[in-house]
Amino acid sequence: MTLPVRALRWSAVLATAAVLGSGSNAYADGPEGNTTVPSADQPSGSTDGKGGLKASVSHIRITYVSGGNGGGKRGNLGTVDSNWKPPACWYEPAFTPAGLKKFVDSDGGGDVGIHESWFGKELWTDHYRDGKPADNFDAHKPVNSSAEGYKNYNLGQSGYFWRGVAPNAADPNSWDCGRIMFWVDAGNLPNDPNSPTPKTLAEYAYDKIKVPVTEIKVKPEAKSTVNLPTWIWLDKGRFKEVKVRAELPNTGLWAETTAKPVALHLTPGTDDAETSPSSDNCTINDDGSIGTPYTKGNADKTPPCGIRYLRATNGQPYRLKASITWQITWQGTGGAKGNLPDGTFETTQDMNVQEIQSINR
């Protein structure tokens, strides 16, 4: 008896969907399944290097054009727009006809789509060699659509088999790319809402930006004093533009995403404080520095970047937050360009504030 090709089990693990003769297995996971996928920027090819085809492995190549390899600690940007996320899924070339034949002949198994895996040579030969139709995995639709089969892996034709990729298959939006691997003629992009664009690559690159950790310098260092300014600054050349290039091979698509530091935002950790400037934002100078270093004799002067605490701490330090705002722009294939939400990188440090003790005679 032949069981159905696909059946869903809504659980946190990969679910067995079918068993076809000769031990061929098709698997499908539910929207909350497969939460331990590898990151998409690992060294990649069509497979995970172990004979399996992984929908979490992308061909996108990331290059740090400038500002990404400096010394010191670095981290990923957050975004000021809580609703913005990098793309959840897209399609990209996976195999040439000869490459797919070689993969199938080696008994390779794995993800034929983001949420569907085929293990067993017969599943692959039925559809990609022998022309038998197979279902797409359209989880958002009442009925799965049907994909026409191929004859002999399209050998002799010029083009690529494209497949969905999702860095995180647990993201509900990754279900938008429900097609199993499909053919696109050379020089063309898929006619699909989730076909990659320069903006797709720009957003992907945004998620790979590494910026210097915000390590501010403070004077006085040990304890600030009520009503006297605390000077805050960052060294020259510390913060420069970071440019990341993303390219998708065999498509002609590329994008460069640039993060430009524009301001240091200070949050004193208490309402009993005044910031300088009053906007709470210290501008970044042309040389990449912020503020002015403290020098002897300036203890009572107002700094270009600093805080004046109005009340002493009482056993618990104030938590001073310092965050750099990065302006994000991009350009790409065919003159495409645009803006993305500003990015931020924040650090927090303790601030103890003391009262000046004096004796009246």
Rank of each mutant, 00 (worst) to 15 (best):
L3I: 09
R6P: 03
A7T: 11
S11I: 10
A12H: 13
A12M: 13
V13W: 15
L14A: 12
A17F: 11
L20C: 13
S22R: 15
S24H: 11
N25M: 14
Y27Q: 15
D29V: 12
T36V: 09
V37L: 07
P38W: 02
P38C: 06
A40S: 10
T47H: 09
K50I: 15
A55T: 06
S56D: 12
V57Q: 12
S58E: 06
Y64H: 06
S66N: 13
G70W: 08
K73N: 13
W84H: 04
K85M: 02
K85C: 00
P87G: 06
P87W: 03
A88V: 12
E92L: 00
F95W: 07
T96Q: 04
P97L: 03
P97W: 02
A98C: 00
G99I: 03
L100V: 05
D107Q: 04
H115Y: 09
Y128E: 10
K132G: 02
D135H: 00
D135W: 00
S146T: 12
E148K: 11
G149C: 08
N152W: 02
Y153D: 15
G159N: 02
W162S: 04
A166R: 03
A170C: 13
F182W: 02
G187D: 05
P193D: 05
T200L: 07
T200C: 07
A202P: 13
A202H: 12
A205K: 01
A205C: 02
Y206L: 06
V211A: 08
P229F: 07
P229N: 11
P229G: 11
P229H: 09
P229L: 08
W231H: 10
V244P: 02
L248M: 14
G252Q: 14
A255L: 05
A255F: 01
T257H: 04
P261W: 01
H265I: 09
S278D: 11
S279H: 03
N281F: 06
I284M: 06
I284K: 05
I284S: 07
G291Y: 02
P293T: 03
K296C: 00
G297C: 01
N298M: 11
A299G: 04
K301F: 08
P304C: 00
I307S: 01
I307V: 01
L310Q: 04
N314T: 12
G315C: 03
P317T: 07
L320P: 05
L320Q: 12
K321T: 15
K321L: 13
S323Q: 15
I328S: 04
A336M: 13
L340N: 02
T347V: 14
N352M: 15
V353S: 14
V353P: 14
N360L: 05
